[in-house]
Amino acid sequence: MASVKIPEQKVILCGEFGVGKSSLFRRYAFNTFVASNSRQSTLGLDHINKEYTVNGKVIKLQLWDTGGMERVASITSSYYKFAEAAILVFALDNPASFHVLSQHLLDIVTYAENAKIFLCGNKLDLVGQVPQVTDADMENFCEQCHNLISATFRTSCKSGEGVEQMFAEIARHLVNANRSRMELQTVDKNSFKVTPPEDPTEEPACLC
């Protein structure tokens, strides 16, 4: 084998409408922040790759946004397929968005059962003197779901605080968890993406 392709690790964002999933996506992708009053919800955001180096090993995280489908309907089950990690996002100033996470967790374990799951409290900049969702609440949640949660984070997309650290940490988890599995998988998985023909001038192979 001449070159070994770096496998992409699909990471999906899950959580209620309006908690800042697309803002996390923008921070991750472009390190920008767009205020909610000057943008449409999630138009045009699909997925984007970024490389991380963990202990000398290169890993490519591929972050996916929901496409805003959760606004009224449910997200397609195919969104979860092939995901290696899922980030459960809620807004720290919105307890309802936190309490509904068990529903999203259920979707993840149903459709992406091998995914590592992370908990992310966003909008850290909006947290006042009395936090609406406390660290203890987050800890309780992790205990209730039998330690399915690999790590918890608090972020602010507005200031950028904690965002890069979160993705670096997720990359570290995936490298550690996948080291042996990644090698195994490439052996038995021979599915592929369809791609445009490489050379249109090339003569097609003859049937006879």
Partner: peptide
């Protein structure tokens, strides 16, 4: 069943609204 879902995501990404 993955095929219609793929095109639904395309529609959503370009601003389509979904109701089930």
């Amino acid at each position: 069943g993955e095929l219609p879902q793929g095109f639904a995501r395309l529609s959503a990404i370009y601003g389509g609204t979904y109701m089930l």
